[in-house]
Design a protein around this nucleic acid. Structure first.
Length: 279
DNA sequence: CAGAATACCTGCGGGC
DNA sequence: TGCCCGCAGGTATTCT
C-alpha cells in the first residue's frame, strides 16, 4: 500500500476539511473489505464531530466524541475529499462520509485489502495495541532497533517490515533504506553491527521524511486527498529498477524474493563487506 | 516460540 | 482480440 508517507500525506490532505466538522451521513456501498465495515456505523457516527485526526503506523484514526474511526488503506486504498457534488460512485467507491460543511470523504479501494472499523474512544483495539514504535519518533533509535534485533534470525528486510517492531515501513521504503545504508537485505537482523543499525535508522528517517515532503510515492494507485499522485517515485533509487544500472556504481540492479516480497538491491553496494567486486 | 506459508481481492501487463 | 499466468504498495492468521 500506501506506506507511512502516503498515509501521512492523506492525513494532512483531509484534516483541514473535516476537523471539527459534524458527520451528517455515512453511505456504505460495500461492507466487505478486509473485515466487514460495522453495519451500525451510520447510527453510531451521525451527529458526532471529528475532534482530532492521527496516524499510527499505517492506520488513520479519526477521533469523534464517542468513537474512533480506524482506516487502513491496504494495498490500493485512497481517501479523497470533495467539496461539491462528487462524481457518481463507481464500483470501488465503497464508502462516503458526509459532513455538515458539505465536504464528502470518499474511500475507494479496488483490492479491498483496506479496512474501516470503529472502536470506542476508551477501548484499545487489538489491531493497534501491539504496534511497534513510530519510525519518525525519538523512540526509534539505534539502541532500540539493536535491542530488538539481538536474537532475530529473520532477514533484516523482513525485520524492518515487521510492524510489531517498527510501524509503517513497507516494501518500498524497506528496500530503499537498505540500499541507502548499503546493507545486504538478506542477512539476519542479528548479524548487523551496531554501526550498521545506526546508519540504517538514520536513512529510514531521512527517506520517510523526504517522501512525506514529496507527497508520497505513487506507483500505480496512490492518490492524495485531492486525487493527485505523489512525486517520490522519481526519487526511488533501487525499488522498481531491476535490470537498470545502480545509481552509485553502475552494477545491474537485481531482485530476489525475501519473505515472499520482491526485493531490489545492488549486489555490489550491498555486499555487506562479504566480498569486494573487482574493478 | 519464531519463522514461513497462506489467505483475502481486483487489475494489469506480458506471453501465447 | 482474448485467455491465462504471475505479479502488485499489506498483514492477520494459520502452519510447521
Amino acid at each position: 500500500m500506501p506506506e507511512l508517507p502516503e498515509v501521512e500525506t492523506t492525513l494532512r490532505g483531509i484534516a483541514p476539511y473535516i476537523q471539527h466538522q459534524i458527520i451528517t451521513d455515512v453511505i456504505v456501498r460495500k461492507h466487505q473489505l478486509r473485515w466487514p465495515i460495522p453495519t451500525n456505523i451510520k447510527q453510531l457516527l451521525v451527529g458526532q464531530s471529528i475532534l482530532d485526526l492521527q496516524r499510527r503506523g499505517k492506520y488513520l484514526l479519526l477521533q469523534t466524541e464517542q468513537h474512533i474511526v480506524i482506516i487502513h488503506l491496504g494495498m490500493s486504498g485512497v481517501l479523497r475529499i470533495f467539496t461539491s457534488e462528487p462524481p457518481k460512485a463507481d464500483k470501488h467507491d465503497h464508502v462516503d462520509i458526509l459532513f455538515n460543511n458539505n465536504t464528502i470523504l470518499r474511500f475507494t479501494d479496488p483490492r479491498r485489502f483496506g479496512a474501516l472499523l470503529l472502536m470506542h474512544k476508551n477501548s484499545e483495539h487489538t489491531l493497534l495495541k501491539n504496534l511497534g514504535v513510530e519510525p519518525l519518533s525519538k523512540n526509534f533509535n539505534a539502541k532500540y532497533l539493536w535491542s530488538k534485533a539481538r536474537n532475530k534470525k529473520v532477514s533484516i528486510k523482513s525485520f524492518l517490515m515487521n510492524h510489531h517492531i517498527v510501524t509503517g515501513i513497507g516494501n518500498i521504503y524497506a528496500t530503499e533504506a537498505l540500499f541507502a545504508a548499503k546493507i545486504d537485505p538478506t542477512i539476519p537482523a542479528k548479524s548487523l553491527t551496531f554501526i550498521q543499525i545506526k546508519v540504517l535508522v538514520k536513512h529510514i528517517k531521512k527517506i520517510l521524511q523526504k517522501a512525506i515532503k514529496r507527497g508520497g510515492t505513487t506507483l500505480k494507485d496512490f492518490l492524495n486527498s485531492n486525487g493527485k499522485p505523489g512525486y517520490f517515485s522519481n526519487h526511488l533509487k533501487v525499488y522498481g529498477r531491476e535490470g537498470l544500472p545502480c545509481v552509485i556504481c553502475n552494477t545491474t540492479i537485481q531482485t530476489k524474493k525475501i519473505g515472499q516480497r520482491t526485493t531490489a538491491y545492488c549486489k555490489r553496494c550491498q555486499a555487506n563487506g562479504r566480498q569486494k567486486v573487482k574493478g
